[in-house]
């Protein structure tokens, strides 16, 4: 859980106004808070609302980060439409299905949608034929973080409503590894986004020579 604090900490350390860094810092801060308040929720209904909100917020942030890296208006619009459909489905699921521990089906759909976006992201990256190594791209680390996190927790999230309490307790810890890995990869991306931003500022400065007389 504390690994989420890495993201706002890195933001404070770098202090750049790049949108992606701000989103990642907010993500770290908000989800750290959300994970902490879960235990204090008084009733089941509130927990259900909380879980649906958690899933959608997580999906929205991941989708935003991937869509902003693709930079194709049509694809971004497509992701937005799919996201609205996903939100509609979540509302229906919330109203019609009573779940035990987690909203497995929306999480499953979230995972599949994110895998599709990430597959397109890689396709787009190769198609645009950049001559830089992919691991220098901050969006690559975001995509890898999401892949590791959603891939690593996929089976747990799908089967969580079909295991007993003991099994749940023992496997719950297994999800920590992908979660920590995701936050580490997101931290790497913050670091790279900040470096990219600094480079672009210094490049701009180099283009304009010193023209003042004094």
């Amino acid at each position: 859980m504390y690994s989420y604090l890495l993201l706002p900490a890195l933001f404070l350390f770098n202090l750049t106004r790049k949108k992606e860094i701000i989103v990642l810092a907010i993500y770290g801060l908000v989800f750290f808070g959300l994970l902490n308040i879960y235990e204090f929720l008084p009733n089941k209904n509130l927990r259900i609302v909380y879980l649906c909100f958690y899933t959608f917020l997580e999906y929205a942030i991941f989708a935003y980060l991937i869509a902003s890296s693709i930079r194709q208006k049509r694809i971004q619009a497509f992701i937005l439409v799919l996201s609205l459909c996903f939100l509609g489905f979540q509302v229906l699921y919330f109203l019609m299905v009573d779940f035990k521990r987690l909203d497995s089906v929306p999480i499953g759909i979230e995972t599949i949608l994110m895998f599709i976006y990430i597959a397109y992201y890689f396709y787009h990256y190769f198609k645009t034929g950049t001559d830089r190594y992919i691991y220098y791209a901050p969006s690559f680390w975001v995509a890898i973080g999401i892949l590791v996190y959603l891939g690593g927790t996929f089976f747990f999230n799908i089967l969580v409503n079909h295991v007993d309490k003991n099994q749940f307790e023992s496997f719950w810890h297994l999800t920590y590894l992908p979660e920590i890995l995701k936050n580490v990869f997101f931290s790497i991306s913050i670091f790279l986004y900040a470096r990219q931003s600094k480079n672009s500022i210094s490049n701009k400065a180099e283009k304009v020579p010193y023209l003042d007389l004094i």
């Binding site: 190594y133 927790t153 996929f154 295991v163 297994l174």
Partner: peptide, 30 residues
Amino acid sequence: KSGVSLILFLGTIGMIILVVALVIFIILHQ
């Protein structure tokens, strides 16, 4: 019950291995 545990464990490990392999492949190919 034991089958679910096994599926859960193997599935999670399998997915992580798959993602790691995919990342290595992408990096090397690129």
